[in-house]
């Protein structure tokens, strides 16, 4: 496993320790590296865009700029849940099909920013076909709790690229 973990580090450059923003989706806790996070905003009205995959919820107006919103629950095949006052949009910078773009991720709630030491991060175990392990940078353990650390470029950036090929 050691070799595999290293391979992840080299390719994504973000597999190791650092500050992570953690958020909840159902019972699961996720984390993304803080350098990718632009801002966190509350839920707002989203304009649906036709001919896009289900997980593209639509677009919003972020201070005069139009950005797409990805509903992570749909993306991960989880059940939908009505939005409440804890529902958040995490705006991240990702590498899209045509360069850097800002994309909002719709999550249940934002938890905290944690410092994750390199030795607390394990490379993702083999889930077989049941879960998309290639989206995952590693599993972080904080105070006995497990955080699933995501590679946002893969989760979001690649789904944007997939959107385009689907349409074409």
């Amino acid at each position: 496993m050691g070799a595999a973990a290293q391979a992840v580090d080299i390719s994504s450059g973000q597999g190791m320790g650092g500050k992570y923003l953690t958020f909840a989706l159902g019972a699961e806790e996720y984390g993304i590296i803080i350098t990718k996070v632009r801002e966190i905003i509350g839920i707002m009205e989203i304009t649906a865009v036709p001919h896009t995959p289900d997980f593209i919820k639509g677009v919003i107006n972020l201070r005069g700029r139009v950005i797409p919103i990805v509903e992570l629950r749909v993306k991960f095949g989880m059940e939908l849940k009505p939005y409440d006052d804890r529902t958040c949009i995490i705006v991240v910078d990702v590498v899209g099909p045509s360069g850097m773009v800002q994309v909002g991720m719709l999550v249940d709630s934002v938890s905290e920013v944690v410092n994750m030491a390199a030795q607390d991060i394990e490379s993702p175990p083999d889930f077989g076909a049941a879960a998309h392990a290639d989206n995952i940078v590693g599993l972080g353990k904080i105070k006995g709790k497990l955080k699933i650390l995501l590679d946002v470029d893969k989760v979001i950036g690649h789904s944007l690229a997939a959107t385009l090929t689907e349409i074409a």
Partner: peptide, 8 residues
């Protein structure tokens, strides 16, 4: 539309 383009 941000990263979304070429939408028919």
């Amino acid at each position: 539309l941000g990263g979304l383009s070429d939408i028919p």
